[in-house]
Amino acid sequence: MADPGPLIEPLIPALRRYAYALLRDHTAADDLVQDTLERALLHWSSRRNDGDLRAWLFAILRNLHVSRHRQALRRGTVVGIDEEELPEITAGQDIVLETRDVLAAVDQLPEEQKSLLLLVGVEDFSYEEAAKVLDVPIGTVMSRLSRARRRLRSIVDGDRVTLLRRVK
């Protein structure tokens, strides 16, 4: 099996982005990526050759995240968003407002919808690859994607009304 470094490293920026989008905390995101990479190296030699490396790494990261997320819920802890990440809100900045709305809105989606939007919409996974990472049939990916985007719209619309009211 080839040296993992040159194969894995080009994928690390995307893994960090996915982890950050899931957790909205820079340090926790890098911890998650580090655990993912350690696991990948541990299993490197037993990795199936036919597998897509990127999908495999994202699946590891996502499995780790889902396990911990479940644990966090059971403990009743809440993962907060970084306050400094929020752009200044002033009246008239509609584009900034909406950008902020979308990220915040995605946080309100169930993990399975959130992951799917990130994998497909941000990481440019094909629908087949996303199905592999999420371990669901392709048909589920398509219907879930449609549902996720509908729900996102209703959240963004709701947030927008609230925010505009607050700004005025």
């Binding site: 993992p4 982005r17 580090q34 979308v102």
Partner: peptide
């Protein structure tokens, strides 16, 4: 529009250099 917003908001994260602790050689 939502898809584009999400991508642009997260793009900075992917443009960051890889931290030393995440370099494969260091983990190895």
């Amino acid at each position: 529009r939502h898809r584009a917003s999400l991508r642009s908001q997260l793009q900075d994260k992917a443009d960051e250099p890889i931290p030393a602790r995440l370099r494969i050689a260091n983990i190895q």
